[in-house]
Computed example of a mutant assay.
Amino acid sequence: MITVRELMTSVGTQVRPDQRLTEVLVLMRQNRHSCAVVRAAPPETEKDLGSCERGVLGLIREQDLLNVLHEVLISGELDVGCARDVMMADPMCVPASASLLDALKLAQESGQRQMPVVDERHQLVGMITQTDIAQAYIHILERQSELVTANRALKAESLQDSLLTIGNRRAMERDLKRLFAQPGRQFALALLDLDWFKKYNDLYGHQAGDRALQQVSGAIKRHMRQGDSLYRYGGEELLLLMTDTDLEGAWQGANRVREAVQQLGIEHADSPLQMLTLSAGVASDPKADLQTLIAYADAALYFAKTHGHNCVVRSSDQGVEDVLEGTHP
């Protein structure tokens, strides 16, 4: 917690209650202060500082001096009096240990722009202004904004695959659970897997494999619908979540991204197709739970991988039922 003591400035101009206003004005101008503190016995030397009475009797502000000047101009009287005649008596003082919020409340309640700061013995130790408090709050708000931005970035990183800059498994599970919590919301998912990708890594190296994965995920993102989401399911396997669509619409969407990957033309000498391609399994069933739906998509993907590759298979396609019986009771 930031306290007033950390923000206060030196006491500044100090005057006696019987000091002439002309002298007060000269001191304020010399010190470039916008107010003067009126005390019973301000110290004359450093030696006197520890023993003198430091209670605050009043404040003289620029506005107070302007009021005097106004009266002089109207009356023509040059006797402007002394400090006690124009000072704000018993001004609001703020404890040095007070928080910024407490100081701001006191300033608003008293209507004072400048407040003397006192210690636990009510001795004058400094000054603080509303500007000081406002600037401190601005700094705090800026820092809080930076922290919020940093926290959002950390949260985004915890839900994002660092290599592909798409959602990770945690993000996928979170988003799927949210969809399952919305009765009647239609959606489908597709499991995507690169064909013969282990051979690709063995032939070209893992760094080339990472670059290929980045190219593939980029192509998929460019060709999926707005509102759909892509996640790294594991290794080279991705999951495409498509909302507000049925099984046929999801098949079309998955086939569109399969074609986009093929059009990249990434060379793969150990593939029968001589290029890097994608296979996919699509599933959509409003009655199925999350694990069952993923099992359906996984069975369809397995069928695609064992029946030609570079294709998209629906979970309802003929032949997939046999795979499903072996993977899900």
Rank of each mutant, 00 (worst) to 15 (best):
S10W: 06
T13Q: 00
T22E: 11
E23V: 05
M28L: 08
S34C: 02
S34W: 11
T45K: 02
D48R: 07
D48G: 11
S51V: 15
V56D: 02
L57T: 01
I60M: 11
Q63S: 06
D64R: 00
L73Q: 11
I74Y: 06
R84G: 01
R84N: 05
M87W: 04
A89M: 06
D90F: 07
V94R: 00
L124T: 03
G126D: 04
I128D: 02
T131N: 15
I133R: 02
A136I: 08
A136D: 00
H139M: 12
H139Y: 09
S145T: 12
E146D: 14
N151L: 14
S158V: 04
D161H: 00
L163W: 09
E173S: 08
K177A: 15
P183Q: 10
K198N: 10
Y200F: 15
V216I: 05
M224C: 10
G227V: 09
D228R: 05
D228G: 02
S229C: 11
R232I: 01
Y233L: 08
G234Y: 00
E236V: 02
D246R: 01
L247V: 14
L247A: 14
R256I: 10
Q262N: 13
E267M: 09
L276M: 11
S279K: 03
K287W: 08
L290N: 07
Q291P: 09
I294G: 01
A297P: 02
A297R: 02
A304Q: 04
R314F: 12
